Amino acid sequence: MTERTLVSETTVEASLGEPEVVGPNPPKEIQGRSPGQLAWIRLKRDRTAWVTGGIILLMLVAAYGAPVLAQLYGTDALEQYPELLDGRGIPLGFAGIDGNHWLGVTPVIGQDVLMQLLYGIRTSVSIAIVSAIAVTAFGTIIGAIAGYRGGKVDAVISWVVDLMLSFPFLIFALATVPIITNLILGGPATRPLWLSASMLLIVFLLFSWTGAARLVRGQVLSLREREFVEAARASGAGMWHIIFKQILPNTWAPILVSFSLTVPSLVASQAYLAFLGVGIGNPHPDLGRLVADSVGSMQLINGWFLLSVSGGTIFLLVLTFNLFGDSVRDALNPRSTK
């Protein structure tokens, strides 16, 4: 047997023997990820989300930890310091700033500005988040019913939405909230904070649900004729089962984006109403009322400083929430950045 024959037989035996090992590190299995996991990965890579999320977290920790910080700081939001005011109620020195009051005191009353800001952030954000949850939930249900039922139901709900969008929210709030406050709730000085917050929640719910309703209606219109909905309908499932179990789970991304953008809008609306004297009344701290207090002393540097601090806080809150909401939208819909 020649050498060439031996080599060919050896090659044949090797090919019929054990499988060939490609390398020391075999290829790894491809792991699938859900849309939520992919969105979370994109959100973690977004620098804007990291910066704005960190600022929001820092402000919320400081605001909701205000009672603990007040004990360390040595004063509370409702404590008054008339000795730091002159005869006209204007803070002494530069806005009343000293070693005990890092941002000075408010005009007329003489309350610590830093504590007013922290408690005001907590009040504004709490009302905005609770109201946004209620507004988004109500608008989602109404929009889902309109989109699924169609016909006359859709026409009536769409007409109501158009009517509410054309109604002047600010005029309604300025006209009705003081009446409710004075005739039913007993005036701004005697109502508790939760009652004032409930009043604002009702006002926001009446006028702010339309955006979520129109968004969800459009999503449901595109989903109600899909195969999985037809299969659920053919199996005898009812309307509520199809809406809550089949359709709405597939619309969670736009609903989440709508919620994230509703929060800063309600923060700004609550500040507008407080600035105009409607909303959270004394003695509860409020960012909008701090801006209103600074207007009375605008001719002095004290007023400009208080306006810059309080207005800047509202601006930072609204800006960071809006930018974070945009990052959430881009993470859930990467095509929106193209």
Rank of each mutant, 00 (worst) to 15 (best):
L185Q: 11
L185M: 15
G186I: 15
G186W: 14
G186Y: 14
G186A: 14
G187M: 13
G187T: 14
P188Q: 13
P188H: 10
A189D: 13
A189E: 13
L193E: 07
L195V: 15
S196V: 07
S196K: 08
S196I: 03
S196Y: 02
A197V: 10
A197Y: 03
S198A: 14
S198T: 13
S198V: 08
S198C: 05
M199T: 14
L200V: 06
L200T: 03
L200Q: 06
L201E: 02
I202Y: 04
I202T: 12
I202A: 15
I202K: 04
I202G: 11
I202Q: 03
V203G: 07
V203M: 12
V203A: 14
F204G: 01
F204L: 09
F204Y: 12
L205Y: 06
L206C: 13
L206P: 03
F207H: 07
S208M: 03
S208P: 00
S208N: 11
S208K: 05
S208R: 09
W209D: 08
W209V: 07
W209E: 09
W209H: 09
T210S: 08
T210A: 08
G211H: 06
G211T: 12
G211R: 07
A212Y: 12
A212R: 02
A212M: 14
A213G: 10
A213N: 08
R214S: 09
L215H: 02
V216W: 01
V216Q: 01
V216T: 07
V216R: 01
R217M: 08
R217W: 04
G218D: 01
G218A: 03
G218N: 05
Q219A: 03
V220Y: 00
V220G: 00
V220W: 00
V220I: 09
L221R: 11
L221E: 06
S222N: 12
S222I: 02
S222A: 13
R226N: 13
R226C: 07
E227Q: 15
E227K: 08
F228I: 09
F228L: 08
F228T: 07
E230W: 04
E230G: 01
E230C: 00
A231R: 05
A232Q: 05
A232C: 04
A232K: 01
R233L: 09
R233A: 12
A234E: 07
A234S: 15
S235E: 12
S235T: 12
G236F: 09
G236T: 11
G236D: 11
G236Q: 11
A237M: 13
G238C: 10
G238E: 11
G238M: 11
M239P: 02
M239V: 15
W240P: 01
W240C: 02
W240S: 10
W240L: 14
H241L: 10
H241E: 13
I242A: 01
I242T: 13
I243T: 02
I243Q: 00
I243S: 02
F244N: 05
F244I: 05
K245P: 00
K245M: 10
Q246H: 15
Q246S: 12
I247R: 00
I247V: 11
I247Q: 03
I247P: 00
N250W: 04
N250I: 09
N250K: 08
T251K: 04
T251F: 04
T251I: 11
W252P: 00
W252I: 13
W252N: 01
A253V: 05
A253E: 11
A253W: 01
A253D: 04
A253K: 12
A253I: 03
P254M: 07
